[in-house]
Amino acid sequence: MIRTVVFDLDGTLLDRDTSLVRFVQDQYDRLLLHDASVDREVYVRRFVELDRRGYVWKDQVYRQLTEEFALPLPWDTLLTDYISEFHQHCVGFPNLHAALDSLKGKGIKLGLISNGYGEFQYNNIKGLGIEPYFDIIAISEWEGLRKPDPRIFTNTLSRLKSKAEESIYVGDHPDNDVTASRRIGMKGIWKRDPYYDPDFAKDGEITDLLEIMNYLQK
């Protein structure tokens, strides 16, 4: 029987693609709108391209944007704004709260493991309003470990006092989430993402977060 469910954040609970576009549009409107030489749609599209789904940190993104578009503000001003304001634009996937409510209602222990900067990711979790659901939140900067390192999974389960064979990990990345969690004995459930090739070993897959309930008895 499953007693613990651990989630990834970006691309699993947080709809990062939508959140990023919302933030960049807002940042443009607040800080760059007065510069008519920078087209809004072009700026947003280029930001998303350079971001590479979050795998390029924003100092590099803003340096490149500042150079390409001759932006009226220095790159570090824009970066500071990103760090302080992004969480206000965080959007969860459909049924985020309903799924977490259902799991907690069944007495399931909940954990979250995310790669990223500690304060930034924690603010995003709070921005989604989901912090109180989790018994343990492990963010790579604070843990000194990054997925797919198996120790970040085993350490989290140890703090939850949970056994791997009674635990599910849910994530969108085939290697960092699903394969890595299965390697330590957890059941790896893939949150489908059309960006990735679906042909890899997994214990199940979901599109809607509520579908995780189907795996609790397996």
Rank of each mutant, 00 (worst) to 15 (best):
I2D: 00
V6C: 07
D8T: 03
L9M: 05
L13C: 04
L14T: 01
D17M: 10
D17N: 10
T18E: 11
T18Y: 06
S19A: 06
L20E: 04
V21Q: 08
V24N: 00
D29E: 13
L32N: 02
L33H: 13
L33F: 15
S37I: 09
S37K: 14
D39H: 13
D39E: 15
E41A: 14
E41D: 15
F47P: 07
F47V: 08
E49K: 06
Y55Q: 13
Q60D: 12
Q60N: 10
V61L: 10
Q64D: 11
E67I: 12
F69L: 08
F69R: 03
F69G: 04
L71K: 04
P72Y: 06
P74H: 07
W75N: 04
T80V: 09
Y82R: 04
F86S: 00
H87K: 02
Q88G: 12
F93N: 01
F93A: 01
P94Y: 07
H97K: 11
A98C: 05
A98P: 00
L100M: 08
D101S: 09
S102G: 12
K104Y: 07
K106R: 15
L112F: 08
G116P: 02
G118P: 07
Q121E: 05
N124D: 00
N124Y: 00
G129F: 00
G129K: 00
G129T: 00
G129C: 05
G129M: 03
E131F: 02
E131V: 00
Y133V: 04
I136Q: 12
A138Y: 06
I139W: 05
S140Y: 08
W142V: 11
E143F: 09
G144H: 05
L145A: 11
L145Y: 12
R146V: 12
R146G: 03
P148F: 09
P148K: 05
D149K: 13
R151E: 14
I152W: 05
N155L: 12
N155G: 13
N155W: 09
S158E: 15
L160C: 07
S162V: 09
K163G: 14
K163S: 15
A164K: 11
D172G: 10
D175F: 11
D175L: 13
V178G: 07
T179L: 15
R183L: 12
R183M: 12
I184C: 07
M186Q: 06
M186I: 08
K187C: 06
K191G: 06
D193R: 09
D193T: 09
Y195M: 11
Y196F: 15
Y196D: 07
P198L: 09
D199V: 14
D199T: 13
A201G: 01
K202N: 05
K202D: 04
D203G: 14
D203H: 14
T207P: 01
T207I: 14
T207C: 10
D208Y: 14
L210Y: 02
E211T: 05
E211M: 09
E211W: 08
Y215T: 01
Y215I: 03
L216P: 06
Q217R: 13
Q217V: 13
K218Q: 13
